[in-house]
């Protein structure tokens, strides 16, 4: 039995080079659930949540690097929240206050659950995952990193060091449907990012497919039809079509949390609401 509490990134990478199949443990909020059930062997663990390089965030020009062990509580609050409001909102819907104090963005990525709350936002922002090992460092776009339900492209000996994402100029939304008002696994979620200077719209869906899904056709249509030079409003017929395309993009399953039909319907509704919040005129917004 070995549990290495790594103090530096190099130390963690060295431990993983020695023991490439060791469990990399950050906040523990997913792994320990499995361990408590007897479903996860914890004989060999590398604990990474005390590594300074993996904690906190930094802005470099228009880009953010968020350390893998930054907690959901930290992402949901403060200056970071104002830079990536959709990510902050997603982080605020994760579990309970206790869970958000422990759960990390790297853990959310590593677990790669279809219901991972931050993943749709990271998908919408074309985030890249910084992966490190003793011998190398590589950057993987989110869609190359999350390759299936609870499956990632991490190789033995690798760990998630950080996630990189752009700071965009424009509204961002994250909406999540759960059967309870708090502390609930998402039945469907949607992230919307409007990049005004880039004149593009990005929509990503959670819990309605094996991995976060980008609604590309919907994005293209919305970006084409927004009056970028005017007030940025999308007319209602286009909104209808965009929402249809969002629903079409979903690939939901039936499970104990929701049905295919409901999930498809829900992302349609979430798309409509997020577009209205993001693109509504000043007067409309005041009425919400």
């Amino acid at each position: 039995m070995t549990a290495t509490i790594a103090r530096t990134l190099d130390e963690a990478c060295a431990a993983l080079a020695d023991r490439p199949h060791a469990v990399v443990l950050a906040g523990g909020t997913d792994l320990m659930v499995e361990a408590n059930r007897g479903g996860r062997d914890m004989e060999d663990v590398v604990v990474v949540d005390r590594i300074p390089e993996l904690r906190g965030w930094a802005q470099h020009g228009g880009s953010l690097r968020i350390g893998a062990c930054t907690t959901c509580a930290e992402i949901g609050d403060g200056e970071l929240a104002s830079l990536v409001p959709a990510l902050a909102q997603a982080a605020r819907t994760v579990g309970s206050p206790q869970i958000r104090n422990a759960a990390t963005i790297g853990g959310n990525l590593g677990t790669a659950s279809p219901a991972g709350d931050t993943l749709p936002v990271l998908a919408a922002l074309d985030a890249e995952v910084e992966v490190r090992s003793a011998s190398a460092s590589r950057m993987l776009p989110l869609h190359d990193f999350v390759i299936g339900p609870k499956a990632t492209a991490l190789e033995p000996g690798e760990l998630i060091a950080a996630v990189h994402l752009p700071v965009t100029d424009g509204p961002q939304e994250f909406l999540k449907v759960g059967v309870r008002n708090a502390m609930v696994i998402s039945v469907a979620s949607l992230a919307l990012v409007v990049d005004r200077p880039g004149r593009n719209v990005r929509i990503a869906l959670g819990s309605v497919g094996p991995v976060p899904i980008r609604a590309v056709e919907a994005e293209v249509l919305a970006a084409e039809r927004i009056d970028w030079s005017g007030n940025g409003i999308l007319d209602s017929e286009v909104v209808e079509r965009v929402c249809e395309l969002v629903a079409d993009a979903a690939r939901p399953i039936d499970d104990h949390r929701g049905t295919i039909a409901y999930r498809r319907h829900a992302v349609d509704v979430l798309a409509r609401r997020s577009l209205r919040r993001a693109l509504a005129s000043e007067e409309e917004r005041n009425g919400l």
Binding site: N181, A182, V269, G287, L288
Partner: peptide
């Protein structure tokens, strides 16, 4: 309704 997921506006 929807609570922390902030899905609903007043209308």
């Amino acid at each position: 309704p929807g609570g922390a997921g902030r899905t609903a506006d007043a209308d």
